[in-house]
Every structure is written in structure tokens, then in C-alpha cells.
Amino acid sequence: MKESVLEVKEFDFYIGKNQILNKIDLTFSRKQVTAIMGPSGCGKTSLIRCINRMHELVQDTKVEGQIRFYGKNIFEMDPILLRRKIGMVFQRPNPFPTMSIFENVIAGYRLNGIKLKKADQNRIVEESLKKAALWEEVKDGLHRKGTFLSGGQQQRLCIARALAMNPRVLLLDEPTSALDPKATDHIEELIVELKKTVTIVLVTHNIAQASRISDFTAFLYIGELIEYGSTQKMFTVPEDKRTEEYLTGKFG
């Protein structure tokens, strides 16, 4: 296995009195795509929201165990700095409606009050949009509102916005669930391209998507990690009976 970026160790997560995740152990390798799949309600979204501490937005949550980012326990870090290093893209595209495409991409800097030279801004916007494969489509209208783009373009804009901060890890929470098949293809190609530069954690309930683009797959079921390994192996010879049933469509 390659060098690990994130390690989840004996991790429990509670909302109120409900235990959502139970003793999760996972390691995410550098510059690889790791898919987390499972039926809805298995806790996969909760897991990646804990990785950049977005779970703290919900009241009455509790975590036990550790998540280590380059060896450091994230719960001892400043959540703000952590989130700048671990980017996130959500189920529904959410560009800032008051901002132009340009401003959306640079938003991570502007909103944080980081002063950049005009040239640096232009460079970051161009690079990020190129990485997100959106540059060619929007380069002539960077000052239009981001909300005028199509759903797939908006989602790529959100990816560009996350990439602009130069994150180490990109968390993708079912990024294609609100998109049509063509836009989904586009995003999937992009994910494969992106892993050259960034570690990707992808939550999906789409089994085919996990098999197409991930290097490693974790299968979660009712808050427990059932199986974790290379995608190729899991999809050909799953170890656990429940994994096999899930992959063959018996439940979920």
C-alpha cells in the first residue's frame, strides 16, 4: 500500500443517543481514489463529514476514537485550518449565488481575507478551472454569475472552488447524484484525472461508479465497516457474504 494520508482509528460517531458509526478502521492512501459505498443510512456521509469536521454543524454529536491527517489527530487541530487542507464537494452543486464564476473560484481566499495580487488571482482561477475541466467552457464569461451554469458545470465549479485552496484531500459526497448521465460521465473522468494531484475520498451509492473509478473501496453497512480493500479484488472476490449480496443487488 502507498503512503497513507488519512487514518481512521476505532472511530465511533453518535448523533444524540443514536450510534451512527461503530469502530471504523480505515486508511486512505495518497493520490488514490477511495470509494465509500453502502446502502442509504449506512453512515457513509456521516463518515466523510467527520473527516473535515463538518459534523460539528449539527448539534448534539459526539465522536470517539481518532482520525489522523498526516499523523495528526484532526480533533486537536483548528477545524478552520483543517478544512482548508481537506476540501469538500457536496451532493447538490452549491455555488455562491451572489458571486461570479471568478469570485466563486477565488472565494476560499477572499472569504478568508487572504489578500492576493491580481496576477496570482488570475493564475489560481485559471489553474483551478483547468483542473476541474471547466476552463474552456467558461473562460469567456468569468464574470457571469455562477448560478447561470448547468448543473454539471456548477458541480465542476464547486470542484474548482475546492481545488483553488490546494487541498491535500478532496472529499466528494455523492457528487453526481443530482446530475444527468452525461454530466456524471464528465465528473467521473475528472475524478480519475484529479487523483494525479490529490487524494480523493468518494462517497457513492452507485456501485458501478465505485467500480469504474476507485482504486480502493470500503463497504459500510449499518454503521459498520464490513469490508475494505482494493476495488478490483472486492468486485471480483468479495470476502464477506453481505458485500457479495450488496454488489449483486440483493439489498440496498
Binding site: 478552520i80 485550518l81 482548508r84 481566499y109 478568508n112 481575507g113 485552496m165 490546494n166
Partner: peptide
Amino acid sequence: QEEDLTITSGKI
């Protein structure tokens, strides 16, 4: 270098 840019100069 860019990484340092975001970490050190952000107003937290």
C-alpha cells in the same frame, strides 16, 4: 508555497 500561503496568511 501556495500551501503555506493559505495556512499562514488567512485571518483566523
